[in-house]
Amino acid sequence: MLKINNLSANIEDKSILKDFSLNINPGEVHAIMGPNGSGKSTLSNILSGKKGYEISGEVLFENNNLFELETEERAHKGIFLAFQYPLEIPGVNTNIFLKTSLNAIRKAKGEKELDAIEFLKLVKEKARELKFDEEKLNRQLNVGFSGGEKKKNEILQMSMLSPKLSILDETDSGLDIDALKVVSDGVNTLRSKDNSFLIITHYQRLLDYIKPDFVHVLMNGKIIKSGGPELALELEKKGYENFN
């Protein structure tokens, strides 16, 4: 599904990713763990199409060259990024935003756009599953939401858009234990033989709830070790510093 070959990324002459390679097949859950500044967020930004990086290497998503696609085209093709810091968008109603987003993607896929009633039915159902306060759907997008609510909103968007590849950028940070469980349930519901996940995190904790197939340790822009879920436990015990 996603093939990253020798990806290097610089920002203002600072090298962040160095010859980074990763292969994600349909249905797989990959976790990337790494200390602050190891390049985790840069990776997720580049996959979603954020500008401002000098890039070399190749990224293929279902055999499309990702670098030839605009940010919104990547979303249309099924890439979703749950932001580490979801943005507050004043004056934009959450429901209107969700509907615009869902219909933009449905339209691009050649599916019928949802009308207001169909949309509301769907969003209410998803919100209930995620224990997301329905009243917040009528508020301005993320404005005045707590850290946990913002993260839940990301997962709500993800479950609405049902992407093929979901990238979760430190979705666990800022969540209490109950919210962590709800969010994980949301992810697990979406797991299927077709959908893949790339989970970026500092801590092993999230991986207790979302069982990864592969764990990769990222340091200084490179994967230094890959393995199964046991790698996360080892990392938790040793810490990043002593890991090498």
């Binding site: 199409g49 919104e72 990547r74 932001f83 943005l87 933009a104």
Partner: peptide, 15 residues
């Protein structure tokens, strides 16, 4: 705000 634009575009909206 370019970051806000990126956020919205990552949800399938065009520029």
């Amino acid at each position: 705000d370019e970051n806000s634009i990126f956020y919205l575009m990552s949800r399938g909206l065009n520029y």
